[in-house]
Design a protein around this nucleic acid. Sequence first.
DNA 1: AAATATTAGTTACAAATGTAACTATTAAAA
DNA 2: TTTTAATAGTTACATTTGTAACTAATATTT
Lengths: 144, 144
Amino acid sequence: MKYSFDKSLGNISRMISKSLGKSLEAKLTARDIFITAEQWSVLSLLFQKKKLTQIEIGTLLGLDKVQIVRIIDILEKEQLVQRVISPTDKRFKNVNLTPKGIEIYHKIVPYATNVHADAFSSISEEDIKQCLATLEKINNNLKH
Amino acid sequence: MKYSFDKSLGNISRMISKSLGKSLEAKLTARDIFITAEQWSVLSLLFQKKKLTQIEIGTLLGLDKVQIVRIIDILEKEQLVQRVISPTDKRFKNVNLTPKGIEIYHKIVPYATNVHADAFSSISEEDIKQCLATLEKINNNLKH
DNA sequence: AAATATTAGTTACAAATGTAACTATTAAAA
DNA sequence: TTTTAATAGTTACATTTGTAACTAATATTT
């Protein structure tokens, strides 16, 4: 197989990741919502999973614990999430959305959906599914 | 279409991009080659295109002109590339690989190929092609 | 049970990155 | 033609990010 290094997976994935983040953040700041793409990832993950430790969040999102501390610090200061020390193991802090966090989650969903719609426009649903499935395989391959 | 925000395109592409970069850099530093993934992107692009202005490099790789200045500064200091002021328009600087740059390009190719092989292992060539094609469409959708 | 090692989370500092303002040069408008 | 605007590239500074060392709690070993 021939590899084209300028349009390689690395370059394309970096560009897409950056574009998606910038695009979402632009839409949000235009609405005076000051949430970064990574903060949004944490919010939506917590909405889905209800309660996760910081390490779990980091593992699922591919972010290290220091980054998670920083994101949760900000989200907690904004009262969008809360940290609850686990009663069974005091090292763990369970993080969950506050009512305000759930509210802002619902507020952001349309913009996030919109960004995806832009990204996927004029591409068949099947192609997108296949692409995402392949990306997940690749991502798993790279988890050494 | 249902969007799963934790395994979304944004998260997966960010993770893949980061993993690929780290993986390549680890292989290279182990061989005492101190080239970052982004520097490598520039080197391989220049190998393909022979001669590009800094703006052209930035456009092709989705990096802004400040980042390009920094990367070219480093590569030039290492004598892997050279800047040549365009005779027809003194604003432009044409960048090209030096013999040493070409040499190191060839030295790195096997490691970059290896990283891709890891990433693509046990995935059919067809799936990979389709995935990359879709990613390129997505990337184009996100331009501007 | 005491000592040692791990683990979750945090903090502090160094390194990398983004933003804005700058120079030099060319193009366009008045 | 001169002055205004636009462009390529650079620099300086503020912000963000990564790395390493740290605390506190639990698990493991001796």
